[in-house]
Each structure stands twice: as C-alpha cells, then as structure tokens.
Computed example of a mutant assay.
Amino acid sequence: MHTYEVFTHYERNHWKLSDVDFSAVRGDLVKPEYVAIAKSAVMGESNVIAAVHGFMNEFVDDYDFSAFAVVWGYQEVQHHYMFKAWLEAIGEGVDDAPVEAMRAPYDPGTTPSATLATNIISELTVNHIYRRVATAVEEPVLKDLLLKASRDEAGHAREFIHFCRERLAKHGEEVASVLETLYVYTSDKRIKHPVSVFKSNLTELADHETIDTAFELFLAEVADSEELEELQGKIRRVFGQLVDRDLSSNGKVRRALADVLG
C-alpha cells in the first residue's frame, strides 16, 4: 500500500514537537500580528478532527487512503499543538470553546474526488502562506515552526494529489466535480480555504481569530501585488496536471468544465 511508504518516510524524517525549545522564544521580538496569526493557525489546524472524521465516513471502502488520513491527521494535530505551545510560551492562552466548535465532521463532497481536490487546495494554500509569512517573522521559534508546517503541508499536498490521481484513473466521471471545486476556490480575488468556507460562520467564532484573520493579515502585511495570482496559478497548474488540461485561467477552467459536461 502507498501509505506504508508514506508512513515509513514520515517516521524516519519527521520532526518532533518535544524537540522544539519553547524556552528560546524571544518575547522582545513578538509583534501583535504574530499572536493573531498563531491564534488563527490554532483554529485552522484544529479542524483536522472534523476532516479525519469526514474522510473515514466518505472513504469507508478505501483502506489505503484512510490510513493516510490517520497519518495526516497526526501531523495536523501536531501543528495545532505547536502553535498553541508557542502562544503559551509568550503568555497567551487559547480558548478551548472555539476549538470545540470546530469538531463536527464535514459532509461528504459532491464526489470523493472533489473531497480530495478540496484538500489539495487547502494544503497548497497553507504551504504557500506559512512559507511566505515565515520570511517576515523575526521571532526565531515561530519562524522555524512556520517553516516546519510549510514543509509538512507540501508533503501532504503531494499525497492528496496522488490519491486524487488514483481516484480519477478509476472514476473518470468525477473529473467534472474536480473542475467545479477548482473554480469555486480560484474564481475570485480572495484566498479561500475549506475551513473558511465551511466553518467561519460558527457563532462560537464571532469574537475570536479565525483562519480568515491570518489570510487578511497575510494580504495586508506580507503579500506583494502578485501574491494571490501566484498562489492561484500554482493551484491551477496542479489541477491541470491532474486532468491533463490547460487550466491556467478561469476562462479555461470554465471551458474545460463545459467540455466535460457537454
């Protein structure tokens, strides 16, 4: 099984939270926006439990992917705890109530391939943002954690791409749902993430940082004028390779979808 290879690779090479020296956090270098980003990341990463639950429900007939979902979930929980630990190191508490509100599982996607496609977008987005935010952060421990998370998310994206490609090879009828997912997440000038789309309207989050808080800070404080276009372009290229089509613009995504449906 593919996930056996993934698991053994992670086991050999993955970092440990217990090896992070949180006593080395430089409080004098912490800025308010770092706190907001870390709190937003805690919320975004806490969604892992809902996602794993959803995967187990939707992929009940796929042991290999389900095993990957468990491995992936462990690493995403690690991200949740690392940002929480950094916040606690600077004396910032984390309210459990908003985290608890994220627990409900996702409903199944329009197709299993669409669910995998959604997670490809999720991983590519946070990989890009964590990496770029790390370049602007001066506090060394947070910078290192952001880079660790960014590398993890790149690996996760690679595996979701693998499983989506495998799924589409067996279920070509699901290509349209993948194109629809791409269009939903890249058709306007906003950063969209599944947690934002499906969870940001929870009443428990009304007075708390959400993943959108981090996106807004990223666009305001870190991103250059071409940043969103660069991110969306990368996502479209990945999807173009998945379905063997030119998806380099929204118009081409629409035309590809029309061809598939027509």
Rank of each mutant, 00 (worst) to 15 (best):
A85I: 02
E153I: 00
N127E: 15
P112K: 14
S200I: 02
E204L: 07
D95A: 14
A41G: 14
E88N: 15
N250R: 15
A51R: 10
S249L: 08
A36I: 01
I49G: 02
E173L: 04
A223P: 08
T203Q: 11
V184F: 05
Q78I: 03
P112Q: 13
F160H: 02
E123P: 01
V60E: 13
N127G: 10
F68P: 03
L242D: 04
L228P: 00
Y74N: 11
A149F: 04
L147D: 01
K143Q: 15
H162C: 05
D188A: 07
L179V: 04
T111D: 12
A38P: 06
E76T: 10
E123Y: 00
A220V: 02
E76S: 08
F22C: 04
F215T: 03
K148G: 02
E209G: 01
H53P: 00
H2C: 00
H156G: 14
S200C: 02
K170F: 01
Y130H: 15
D61V: 03
E166F: 03
R236F: 07
E45W: 08
R254D: 06
K252E: 09
Y34M: 15
Y106S: 06
S66F: 05
V141A: 11
Y10F: 13
T118E: 13
E174C: 04
E230H: 04
D96I: 12
E100T: 12
A104H: 13
C164W: 01
K234Q: 12
L179A: 03
E209K: 06
E230A: 06
G262S: 06
V60Y: 11
A169G: 11
W15Q: 12
L146M: 13
K84D: 08
I90C: 08
F83N: 10
D212M: 06
R190S: 11
L261D: 03
R132F: 00
A220P: 00
V60L: 08
A69Q: 07
E5Y: 03
D107Q: 13
E209T: 11
K31I: 01
S150E: 04
S187V: 06
S177I: 10
L228Y: 02
R132S: 14
A51E: 12
V178F: 07
Y63L: 15
F218V: 07
F68Y: 15
Y63N: 04
G93M: 08
E229D: 15
H9N: 13
V126T: 15
V141N: 05
S18F: 02
K148N: 14
E139I: 07
R151G: 01
K199Y: 14
P112C: 09
A114N: 09
N127K: 14
E76V: 11
F59D: 10
F163A: 01
G172N: 06
L87D: 05
P98L: 14
A149Q: 05
G91E: 06
E45C: 07
K16G: 00
V184L: 12
I90H: 07
V94W: 09
A89D: 11
G73Q: 10
G155K: 10
D28R: 05
E139S: 00
C164G: 04
V260M: 04
Q78F: 03
S18D: 13
A256L: 10
M82Y: 00
D244A: 12
S249H: 07
E209H: 12
H128T: 06
